[in-house]
Amino acid sequence: METFITNLLNGLQYSSYLVIVSVGLTIIFGVMKILNVAHGSFYAWGAYTSAFFIGKFSDMGWPDAFGFVIIFASAIAVGLVLGFIIERGLLRFMYGRDEVVIILATFGLFLVLEDVILLVFGVDPYFAYQPMAYLESVEVGGITRDVYGLSLILVSTLVAAGCWYGLNRTKWGNILKAVIFDREMSVSMGINVPMVYTVTFIGGTALGALGGAYIAPTVSVAPGLGGEVIVLSFAVVVIGGMGSIPGALIGSILIGLLRAISVHEFPQIELFVIFAVMAVVLVFRPEGLFAPAKVRKI
């Protein structure tokens, strides 16, 4: 029973972190048909920005709880600045090119952003433990857990619910769905598609950054942070169905639980299992478990 609860919580905690990052990735893909490798860098930028400012404000004597404000503020700031610059300044010139060529362009962007982080923040790792210390720890299933890690589950639930609500219950959501479904038709209906692209990209970037910003207090924020995340979230998005938000959710939970169980029972297969599932899903259901509906065009 203890093991079960532990595995479940570990799995959910890991899933939550994947959810936040992958939802951003999958929204960008759904709307813009860009599988964005640079998403890993957005994650890293979020982590660096929040760790940097949490440290700065803490030095100035602000209370630890203020860290939570900084986390969300950094995510939004990174989304607005990086997302805007990259979409308007670079991706705009690539629409219409081969999907795979655009992946490669974002790979180039990823390499560039990795080094820009180094130039801006230096090589020394940052610690931003204040928010984690503020929430203290609690006993669950026979072992101590930090409340901060558990709060990740709450945040990801909010993010997922917010995305669902935004997509299904608002006017903006309807516009987005229209663009996802058929770009040309949306243009002819008078939707400002370039504007939709910019907003989507900023939103997706902010979500990627939020993943990093929220994880930052639990890790040593150091260069190379983004490389690991990106393949994992690729796996999530592919398993769930590229462009599908419920898919990203299910994909994250699946991978999170599988990883937790394998680390506990067979530590050897931890990495292998994630990508094996990705390959199996691709072989038997190439469109992913929750493929968004596709229009057949002639």
């Binding site: 599988l35 999907e99 795979v100 992946i103 393949v231 690729f234 796996a235 592919v238 590229m242 050897q268 297969i269 931890e270 990495l271 292998f272 299992v273 994630i274 990508f275 094996a276 990705m278 390959a279 691709l282 072989v283 190439p286």
Partner: peptide, 20 residues
């Protein structure tokens, strides 16, 4: 993109095996 992704998955499976 499916060709690209399945190739990626296969290479990462091999990576996962070797690394561990």
């Amino acid at each position: 993109i499916f060709f690209a992704m399945l190739s990626l998955a296969l290479s990462m499976v091999l990576y996962g095996i070797i690394v561990k």
